[in-house]
């Protein structure tokens, strides 16, 4: 694993912002612009052929949305987490759905619930929620309960 990180560092200097290790898991924090190149390198050169998961987390106070990729090598049984911090004003990152077919729906889910734009994604539509839904519920500012919950709801009889 150490040589994988070394290879990334020499091939993409400055791409890795931080390496976090906790409970036997390794997380690479990667600069948003380089994340696709790093993931492509991991897939094609290092044999991380299985994209297990794409997820996200919203940190409003730090003003960022993290997008998290979990890649796995079925051969060497290694698992690696790649995290990229996106600015809240413009949460945009390149799609990896052309590298792994798995990413298609997983990225659509992140777009739907968290509002992250994946450039180059062929079919970036809502997947869980109806198409006319407003807002992205997994953002922290989205209310869980209270009067605000139905803010965008128009009863069928009042619809145009």
């Amino acid at each position: 694993m150490a040589d994988v990180i070394q290879a990334i560092q020499s091939k993409f200097p400055g791409a890795i912002l931080e390496i976090v290790e906790y409970q036997g898991e390794r997380t690479l924090v990667v600069r948003p612009g380089r994340v696709k190149a790093v993931l492509g390198h991991l897939k094609q050169i290092e044999g991380f052929n299985f994209l297990a998961d794409v997820s996200s987390a919203h940190w409003p106070e730090e003003g960022r949305i993290d997008v998290v990729y979990i890649v796995r090598s079925l051969k060497s049984r290694e698992q690696l987490r790649v995290r990229t911090p996106l600015p809240i004003e413009d949460p945009t990152v390149e799609t990896v759905s052309d590298l792994w077919g798995t990413a298609d729906w997983l990225e659509r889910e992140v777009y739907d619930l968290m509002g992250v734009q994946f450039t180059g994604h062929a079919d970036l539509r809502r997947i869980m929620l109806p198409e006319d839904f407003e807002g992205h519920p997994l953002r922290k500012e989205y209310p869980m309960e209270g009067d605000d919950e139905w803010r965008n709801y128009v009863p069928p009889e009042n619809r145009e």
Binding site: A52, S55, S56, A57, I70, W105, E109
Partner: peptide, 29 residues
């Protein structure tokens, strides 16, 4: 299949973010 739970904590008694890697969802693709 592979059922994964991604837990992000901010140090409080409630999860900051909890993501489920649902195997049915990915397999349905």
């Amino acid at each position: 299949g592979m059922l994964g739970f991604y837990v992000v904590s901010d140090g409080t008694d409630k999860p900051w973010r909890l993501h489920v890697r649902a195997p049915s969802f990915v397999n349905l693709q």
